[in-house]
């Protein structure tokens, strides 16, 4: 294994350890996901409803409780992954900075965060899909899982950005919850009249919701919606990338040193004796 790959693997392993040690997030995954979906199954009437898929104009027919489970599952995975990524980023911010200043290459640290985000989102989305599958048969379960995943990674990236920016833990948690609740409440295809579809289309999990509804109750594959979700993810990821670079950069030059080469600005770790000046 090349040294830079090895550093990436080590950083990823440690990030995953950190996630698993976050007992509260793990408990949320184990309990909150099935709870939300089961409440949808048993508390909502299973009357057939027809609704229009905004993305295509197609009219779909679903049972009310199944449709509720989809938006409930989206709510659960976005909250959990958003919270988990926020909480890890928030609590290890200064530590990451110390590691980076000591010479841990920033790209590897950052990629490790991305890898853990992807893994966590995949696990939670598969789990939520499996729980729904236990109650009914979504037409396209794989696409359903992919749709949940796309929303989860988006919120995870938002969580990383918030974890780098906010000053107090509660602020970040409140923001994650608020964004997810508003986002999904407005998209409820039955309750919301879809009157202002222009606004609804701008919500952060619009693509995932459309694609997940299509996966549940039709045979259409809405690649364009997954594309919209991808754009949201990339935007959020770029924001968190910028925030992370800002947070871990060395004050010496204001530049982010590439520590593997012992760049002169990376003072704490310059491998070869060399003289540096800053003014």
């Amino acid at each position: 294994m090349s040294p830079s790959l090895a550093r990436f693997v080590i950083a990823t392993r440690f990030t995953l350890i950190e996630h698993v040690r976050n007992r509260f997030a793990v408990a949320l995954v184990l309990l909150f996901v099935p709870l939300w979906i089961s409440l949808g199954q048993f508390m909502i009437v299973d009357m057939g409803v027809s609704f229009r898929l905004w993305a295509t104009g197609e009219i779909l027919v679903a049972r009310g409780n199944e449709l509720t489970q989809i938006s409930g599952a989206l709510n659960a995975v976005t909250l959990i992954v958003g919270f988990a990524m926020f909480s890890v980023t928030f609590s290890s911010g200064t530590f990451d900075r110390r590691l980076a200043m000591a010479g841990y290459p920033r790209p590897q640290l950052l990629l490790a965060k991305v890898a853990s985000l992807v893994l966590a989102s995949a696990v939670v989305s598969l789990y939520a899909t499996a729980v729904m599958w236990a109650y009914w048969s979504p037409r396209q379960p794989v696409l359903l899982a992919v749709s949940l995943f796309s929303a989860a990674v988006t919120y995870g990236a938002v969580g990383v950005a918030l974890g780098t920016v906010v000053r107090r833990e509660l602020e970040g948690i409140f923001l994650v919850v608020m964004i997810s609740v508003i986002d999904l409440a407005l998209q409820n295809p039955i309750a919301s009249k879809g009157a202002d579809t222009a606004l609804v289309r701008l919500l952060p999990s619009y693509g995932a919701m459309q694609s997940a509804s299509a996966a549940g109750f039709s045979h259409s594959v809405l690649l364009s919606c997954l594309g919209v979700q991808l754009v949201w993810f990339v935007g959020a990821a770029l924001l968190s990338l910028l925030a992370f670079r800002r947070r871990t950069r060395s004050a010496v030059t204001g530049r982010v040193p590439s520590s593997t080469q012992g760049a002169p600005c990376s003072l704490p770790t310059a491998r070869r004796p060399k003289s540096t000046t800053r003014s």
């Binding site: 003072l267 704490p268 770790t269 310059a270 491998r271 004796p273 060399k274 003289s275 540096t276 000046t277 800053r278 003014s279």
Partner: peptide, 9 residues
């Protein structure tokens, strides 16, 4: 101000 370093720290 100026800080000059030599070596690792």
């Amino acid at each position: 101000g100026v800080v000059r370093h030599e070596g690792r720290f």
